[in-house]
Computed example of a mutant assay.
Amino acid sequence: MPIYEGTTAIQSNDLIGRKVIRNGGGTVDALVARIEETTARLRMSTHPVAQRTAERLERAVEATRRATASVLSFASAPRDAAAVSVPYLMLLGVLAGGWMHALAVAAVLAHETEGEKDAARLTLADFYGAHHLPRVHALAETVAGGEIG
């Protein structure tokens, strides 16, 4: 559970202030570029889990871009930026989880034959993409609302 006036707040405010606003979103742009490399690799596969994972991750990346633009628009409104720092931190955490599952899918598909553990990894990635990754979209809406919404 988040500790809003403790570690979570410290990390989220550092993320917003030093890693997003201060460099104009460059850190997030670099992260997104790496995620897009992974989705491009998945798009080359005809495997249905690879295709679904890439599609879901691409949509989550777009929501992340919108959320990051919102954060950057709050550069002159520190209360708005602070108010959405925890949802933004959570958004990036969920996105990173989706990316890690996408990397697992790419690794599994690189195997010559699919083993029992490989099938489980594909199932987990598909589940995460369907049940957890959509949270990025809701969190992006929260971020866009700023302090008041």
Results as ranks from 00 to 15, higher is better:
17 G>K: 15
36 E>N: 11
90 M>S: 10
149 G>N: 09
46 T>G: 09
98 G>N: 02
140 A>W: 01
47 H>V: 04
12 S>V: 07
97 G>N: 06
56 R>S: 15
9 A>S: 08
113 T>W: 05
70 S>C: 06
148 I>R: 11
50 A>G: 06
88 Y>T: 03
137 H>S: 12
147 E>P: 01
66 R>D: 14
84 V>S: 02
12 S>R: 04
130 A>I: 04
100 M>W: 02
39 T>V: 13
15 L>W: 08
122 L>H: 04
5 E>P: 00
36 E>L: 13
102 A>H: 01
82 A>T: 12
140 A>C: 04
31 L>W: 10
22 R>N: 12
130 A>L: 09
22 R>E: 14
43 R>I: 05
53 T>Y: 00
8 T>F: 08
45 S>Y: 13
42 L>M: 08
77 A>M: 10
22 R>G: 02
137 H>G: 05
1 M>N: 08
45 S>W: 06
87 P>S: 10
144 A>K: 12
36 E>Y: 05
89 L>M: 11
45 S>R: 12
112 E>D: 15
15 L>E: 05
87 P>G: 07
126 D>Y: 00
53 T>A: 12
125 A>R: 03
59 R>M: 06
68 T>S: 11
136 V>H: 00
135 R>P: 00
61 V>Q: 04
71 V>W: 00
59 R>K: 13
4 Y>C: 03
104 A>N: 10
14 D>M: 11
25 G>Y: 07
88 Y>V: 03
78 P>T: 01
84 V>L: 06
139 L>M: 11
131 H>N: 13
130 A>S: 15
12 S>W: 03
24 G>I: 02
108 V>Q: 04
94 V>S: 01
64 T>L: 02
116 E>C: 01
25 G>W: 06
127 F>Y: 11
83 A>F: 07
27 T>F: 09
132 H>A: 11
87 P>A: 09
32 V>N: 09
106 A>E: 14
99 W>I: 00
110 A>D: 15
100 M>P: 00
44 M>Y: 02
147 E>Y: 11
129 G>K: 01
128 Y>L: 08
19 K>D: 08
110 A>C: 02
145 G>Y: 10
25 G>L: 05
103 L>T: 08
61 V>C: 11
70 S>Y: 04
128 Y>G: 09
96 A>S: 11
61 V>D: 02
